[in-house]
Design a protein around this nucleic acid. Structure first.
Lengths: 329, 329
DNA sequence: TTCTAATATGGAATCGATTCCATAGCAACA
DNA sequence: TGTTGCTATGGAATCGATTCCATATTAGAA
């Protein structure tokens, strides 16, 4: 591995001068500069970033903590992040927790020990220990998707999103709207989306039978089962169903098709999440697409701002969403 | 930021001893050890990785170069990589080229300057400059998806996969099999899959009209157009179509549906790639699922082997694939 | 001609770890 | 008692950069 010392010797200058050439700083004669550049070219020399970081503190690396990698959400987020960060010369150091809360803390420590210039956390479970670990350290920090007080947050407006979806149903003439949610422990998908649904009903003076409100997990099967419960147990059958994820919606559609009902003619189904799936199934699935790339870009910008010295305490950025395939209700 | 020096002072030992405690090496008395650990605990000290790497050379970081992040392939690959690497204490430094060949080279240099312990490249365009840049540097290296001579390669058996698909069609009684490919510049998807198709036909003594063999891009629309060309221009209509990606297949199905044909009753369609889509559209799409996570795991293992000192020159690992939804042809 | 300021360069300290080498205490053995 | 070997510890060099400070050269001003 060729070092600055070797470049200096070959170009017959001091290491100081080589450093000046590389960083375009201080006074260097044209002649010396030319010689140094020549040697660098010849040798294919690349400065050792660790030595550099050790001195300068800045590492040009951003740590990213993700719950999962093989989900559309994660990859779209990373895409948005990278768009902004790469442009500014930052690289992404990726860590994946696989939904293990202990790993969240472990990776947080690890990223600090690697002296990353900033950390972006797409959190799942927010707990005391995690928050404490975040606060001690003074590293620029942005969370995405879950709110943590006192930090910079990039959030999706889950509440409004499901209210919007209820509005759309009502516009299309639906009055009996069922709901397939998930556990409310999940603040965003479980709690907020349900609240938005309830609020939507309230705004239009609608009510729902208890049986219309079901709870599933994050998979297709539980969408199927939830829909089954609704159709079998409810006194009145709903004319529309809002599922909080696209997979749940697809499960629901499966069940409806299985019992010979046509979607959306007999009963309308909408999902949330804007998955790619939604446009390829037929008929395409009405859903809400959260602009996850935007969230990534926004998070990256907030982080860069903090790195530049601005304080972003208690900042909240709400990310837009839009309706996809609304014609298919 | 608390350093080893401060720990040493507080514990009334030398930095050497602190280092010994941290790394469990050399002789340290129980007493000294206890004091050091106490101080580390109290201060929340984490060793600076850059200083450490500067001395030891090892960085415990693996550079990964991807063409795109928001594709199923990329995220499944990263998942497989991370499964193995995280277990061994390695982190992933992610770079995304967005299909720009210049970036491939740029990032290669950058990863070297960051002294990563190894590099994994999911390459798109293999060119001279790139190969040269790879060879000079002596960093452990693995490519995924495209073959580069003299290196460790993890490859998918594209050739056999499309031959397998032809076999399946034949088994199901098809004799007139059309093909929607992509540009053969793309060695894996374009060239090999087409060759496999041709070989498959040959093996069963089948032939194809020229018009049955179309070329699209990587999107749904060109699948639609290609299918249209086949149906409008061919003298005989095929009874089956093999598309080299699932999206092309979906486009083809769209067109067939639009002209009132039923899939698979009137004409059978298969894709390749095993996208999630394939199981959620109805009827589900017959496709070939390459075990991309396996590829990731295999690549990681090959890299670790090289880091451990084994030479893996000219190694080729072929990754398995399997048929999905074969009942829907 | 002397002084000042801009230009050009290098020596040496520094960042925070690891590690080679020297030294010292102490027990066992001849 | 002297030698050997194990345990325990610290001093100082080292990794490869950056940067403060000192110094040398040269040009222009007084």
């Amino acid at each position: 591995m060729v070092t600055i010392k070797e470049i200096a010797e070959r170009a017959k200058v001091s290491r100081t001068t080589v450093s000046r050439v590389i960083n375009n700083s201080g006074y260097v004669s044209e002649d010396a500069k030319k010689r140094v550049l020549k040697v660098i070219e010849d040798t294919g020399y690349v400065p050792n970033q660790y030595a550099k970081s050790l001195r300068t503190k800045s590492t040009k690396v951003i740590g990213v903590i993700l719950p999962k990698i093989s989900t559309e959400t994660s990859s779209r987020l990373v895409k948005g992040l990278d768009e902004i960060l790469a442009k500014e010369g930052y690289q992404i150091l990726l860590t994946i927790t696989n939904l293990d809360p202990n790993k969240e803390i472990e990776y947080l420590k690890l990223l600090k020990s690697r002296n990353v210039d900033g950390i972006i956390l797409s959190a799942t479970n927010i707990n005391e220990v995690l928050i404490e670990e975040i606060h001690q350290g003074e590293v620029p920090f942005v969370t995405v998707g879950q709110h943590i007080a006192g930090l910079a947050n990039v959030l999706f407006d889950d509440y409004r999103a499901s209210r919007d979806m209820v509005s759309l149903f009502v516009e299309k003439g639906h009055k009996k709207i069922a709901f397939i949610g998930v556990d409310e422990q999940d603040h965003s998908v479980g709690y907020l989306r349900k609240q938005g649904y309830l609020k939507g009903l309230e705004e239009y003076g609608l009510t729902a039978e208890d049986k219309w409100i079901q709870k599933g997990k994050f998979d297709v099967e539980s969408g199927y089962e939830s829909m089954k419960s609704i159709m079998e147990d409810a006194k009145q059958k709903p004319s529309a169903v809002l599922a909080v994820t696209d997979r749940l919606a697809i499960g629901a559609i499966r069940y409806l098709n299985d019992i010979g009902l046509s979607v959306p003619n007999d009963i309308a189904v909408a999902g949330m999440g804007g998955s790619e799936l939604s446009k390829y199934i037929s008929p395409s699935l009405t859903t809400i697409d959260f602009s996850i790339e935007d969230a990534g870009r926004e998070a990256a910008k907030l982080l860069l701002k903090q790195i530049d010295g601005s304080s972003c305490k208690d900042v909240i950025r709400l990310i837009d969403h839009r309706l996809l395939n609304h014609f298919s209700i």
